[in-house]
Computed example of a mutant assay.
Amino acid sequence: MSRDTSTRRTEEKEDDMTELQERAAEPATTKPTPARAAARRLGPGSAAIGLPLLGVLIAMVAWWLITSVFHLVHPASLPPPEDVFQALVENRSVLLEATGATTLSTVVGFLLSTVAGVLIGLALAASRRVERMFSPLLVAVNAVPKIALGPLLVVSLGWGQKPILTMVFLLCFFPIVLSTATGLTTTPAELAELARSLNASWWQAFRKVRFPAALPQIFVGLKVAMPLAAIGAVIGEFQAGEAGLGYQILQFNGVGAYSTSWAAIVLIATMSILLYFALVLLERLALPWVRATTSSR
């Protein structure tokens, strides 16, 4: 009897171990958190809009507490949000016109830097000699403080759009160059081997394999460069602008209208956010497979 009992226990242990191994082999399922459950109930569209608005609301409440309740900073340094909103309403015609000028400079400069940055990145990725020859120069140009070039650009290019667009270009082209060159030189090995096995030409491999595989990395550089383009436009308007939000900030600061200057800063931030998320939307439409293959968020 004792021998049969021990045999039965051994078999039961083996069955238990087999069951545990089968459970371990099954894909793990995570219990949804309350936030995820709420997001699923609201839907992806509501979460995509509601969560950013919630973040803005939290920032506004913190701003109000710092300036209006606890008075931690001087109003000249950071006016209360209600004063900034009132200044925005009172000067809306001037500020909205300036927003249009700054947005145009930002978008045009960003597009120019995108075209040039992608082409330079292609050249660096195509030839190691070209990369070794010009990479130090690109790093040197990127390391120069751009605000120090402002007066020189005014002297050489005059007032108006030319120095502003040049400033935008200088600020945001380097991330695009770097991301393009990195994406084109890090093609997955299995894709490159597949192209070789199909006897694809250089152009076919580039068009069908290398460039599509590099697009996620290129969009990373574009998303880094977009806020820099707005910064470049404002710096250019500080130095050589005759319109735009940067020019208006200088004008309102000169007469002590600090709330209106902060209203212009809020508009710059809003413009940058909208342009950035427009680029994110473009990435999702152009690369629908990226979210499905790289992240579960």
Rank of each mutant, 00 (worst) to 15 (best):
I268E: 08
G158K: 01
R196M: 04
L152C: 03
A143W: 04
G43E: 08
P227Y: 10
L96R: 11
A38Y: 07
V69K: 14
L53E: 04
G55M: 09
V130S: 03
A47S: 06
T99D: 07
W262S: 14
M60V: 15
L153I: 07
S259Y: 01
I273N: 10
T5V: 15
F173W: 05
R3Q: 12
L279Y: 03
L287C: 08
T99M: 14
W289H: 14
R92H: 12
M271K: 10
V84Q: 02
T29Q: 07
L42D: 11
T67A: 14
T33L: 10
L281S: 12
E131V: 05
M133Q: 14
T180M: 02
L281P: 00
E283V: 13
L65C: 10
A39G: 13
V115M: 08
S197H: 01
E237A: 06
T294I: 01
E19F: 06
T293H: 01
E131Q: 11
L267C: 09
I147F: 02
A116G: 11
Q248Y: 11
R132L: 15
V155D: 00
S68R: 12
P288Q: 11
G117D: 09
F277A: 11
T106V: 10
V73I: 04
T103L: 15
A213F: 00
L122Q: 08
T18V: 12
A48G: 15
A47H: 04
K208F: 03
W203A: 15
V108Y: 11
R8Y: 04
M167L: 15
R207G: 08
E97S: 14
L157Q: 12
G43N: 11
R41V: 13
E131A: 11
M226G: 09
T18S: 05
I231T: 15
Y276I: 06
T7R: 08
V266E: 01
L184N: 04
A269Y: 03
T102H: 00
A47W: 05
L88A: 13
S105H: 14
L281Y: 10
T185M: 05
S105C: 06
Q204N: 12
A233H: 01
V108R: 02
